[in-house]
Design a protein around this nucleic acid. Structure first.
Lengths: 217, 217
DNA sequence: ATTGGCGCTTGACGGAGATCAAGGTCGCGG
DNA sequence: CCGCGACCTTGATCTCCGTCAAGCGCCAAT
C-alpha cells in the first residue's frame, strides 16, 4: 500500500490508439475563436472532440453565476467525454483553436469492435482520474498548495525550461476554487520563496522542483 | 440550454442490467466488520464490487494525514470501478456490511459481448457524474450549501419520512471538505431555520424541501 | 507620444470557517 | 443503576482567504 501520490500521469499519457485512429480518419476540423463556445452546458452529447491546436477549457455555471472550471485540454487531448445524455460542463476555446470532432454514433457503429469500446472506456477512466485528483485538490488543500499543484501539472505537460500559462488568473481561480487575488498573492509568494520564477505574468519556470512537489503534497 | 442543475439522478438509478446479472450469478459474498478495509489505497484493481447490505465509503489519505472521502455506497451500488491499475481511493465498511465481488478479468472474459463493456462504461460514466458534482460542491459552495446539498442527496435515496445518517460527522466533514464543528453548526442552523429536523443525531426529516433545494443550488 | 482599457498586483479590512477547549448526550458494560 | 467512553454540540478565538479599492504595466488605437 502506497501512501504518497506525487503525480498523476493520466494527464501526460497520449489517448488510446484506437481512438486516435478514428479521429485521424473521420475527425472534422473546425476553428473556434478565443472565448467562443464549442458546446454549451445542457447540450446533447453527440460528438467526441480532440484538440488540434490551441487550448480548450470546460466550465460549469451555477444558477447564481458562480463558475467552476472543469479542466484544460491541450493539443492531442480528447474532450467531450461525458456520461449523461447532456453536457454538464460547457467547452470553450481558451485561445483561438482548432478542434476535430466525430459523431458518437459514428464511433459506435464503427465499433462492434470491442477494441473501440475499450478505448472509450480507457479515455473515460483517465478523465475520472483527473476528477479524483481535482476532488482532493479542492477538498483538502490550502490556497498555496492548490496553486503549487496547478503549476506542477502545467510544468509536467511542458517539460523543459519556460512554461506557458495559456489561461488568465480568473480561469486558474475558477479551476482551483479561489479568487484571482488569492491566486495572484500565492504566485508572488511562491516566487518570493524562489520556488518558481515569472519573467512575465503568462510564463514561468520552476526553480526548485522538489519544493514544488512537497507543497503540492 | 439549461442553466439550473437541481438534481443528479445518477445517484438514484439502479446499475445497468448486464452487470447486475453477472453479479447475481458470479458474485462472491463476503462480510466486513465496521471500519475495516475492503481494499486499500494503492492496491491493484482486480475486482468489481457491489454492496449487498450496509454502507461502504471510499477514502483517500494525503501523505500528511488529511483525509478526503470519495463517496458513500448503498445496497445495490457498484463500487471499485477505478480506471488506473491501482486504487487511488481505499474502500472501507462504514457499518458492518456484506459485499459481493467478481474478478475484473472474469467480467472481461465473460464479455466479448459488447453488452457488458457498455454496461461497465455506463457505470463508470455514472461515477464520473458523481465526481463532477462533487467538484462543483467542493469548489464553489459555502459550508451551509454543502451540508444542505449533502442532506438532499441522502433524502433522495431514502424517500419518505425519516432519513438515516449511516455516517458520523467526521465522515460528512471529510466528504464536504469541512471540519466536524462546522458541519455540526450548519446542521443546527438548518434545524433552527426549520428546514430540516433531527430527532436524534443520526436521523433527520426534511421539513421544507423547496428551501433545501434552493440552498443546495 | 497620449490615452484608454484590460489584466494583474497590492493593500486594508472583514468574515467564514478552522482551531482550541469545554461541556452534553447517548449507549453500553459492569 | 451507575459510570465510562465515543460522538456530538457549543462557545471563544484565531487565521486564511474573500471582498473592496487602488495602483501598476502593457498593448492597441487614436
Amino acid at each position: 500500500m502506497t501512501l504518497a501520490y506525487p503525480l498523476n500521469d493520466a494527464r501526460v499519457a497520449p489517448p488510446p490508439a484506437a481512438l486516435t485512429g478514428v479521429m485521424d480518419r473521420l475527425g472534422v476540423r473546425a476553428g473556434h475563436a478565443k472565448d467562443t463556445e464549442i458546446y454549451a452546458q445542457g447540450d446533447d452529447v453527440q460528438y467526441l472532440y480532440r484538440v488540434v491546436s490551441g487550448v480548450v477549457r470546460t466550465t460549469r455555471l451555477t444558477c447564481d453565476g458562480r463558475r467552476q472550471v472543469g479542466d484544460f485540454y491541450y493539443p492531442g487531448d480528447l474532450f467531450g467525454l461525458e456520461p449523461g445524455p447532456d453536457h454538464r460542463f460547457a467547452a470553450e476555446a481558451l485561445s483561438d483553436c482548432v478542434v476535430q470532432s466525430v459523431r458518437r454514433t459514428t464511433v459506435r457503429t464503427m465499433a462492434g469492435d470491442a477494441e473501440l469500446d475499450r478505448a472509450i472506456l480507457e479515455a473515460t477512466s483517465r478523465e475520472m482520474a483527473r476528477l479524483q485528483d481535482h476532488v482532493l485538490l479542492l477538498g483538502r488543500k490550502s490556497a498555496r498548495e492548490k496553486v503549487a499543484g496547478f503549476l506542477m501539472q502545467l510544468a509536467q505537460r511542458q517539460p523543459g525550461g519556460a512554461v506557458m500559462l495559456p489561461m488568465g488568473r480568473q480561469d486558474m481561480a475558477d479551476y482551483l476554487g479561489l479568487t484571482i487575488e488569492t491566486v495572484s498573492r500565492m504566485l508572488t509568494q511562491l516566487q518570493g520563496d524562489l520556488i518558481v520564477e515569472f519573467p512575465s505574468s503568462r510564463r514561468f519556470q520552476v526553480k526548485q522542483w522538489d519544493a514544488l512537489e512537497d507543497l503540492a503534497a
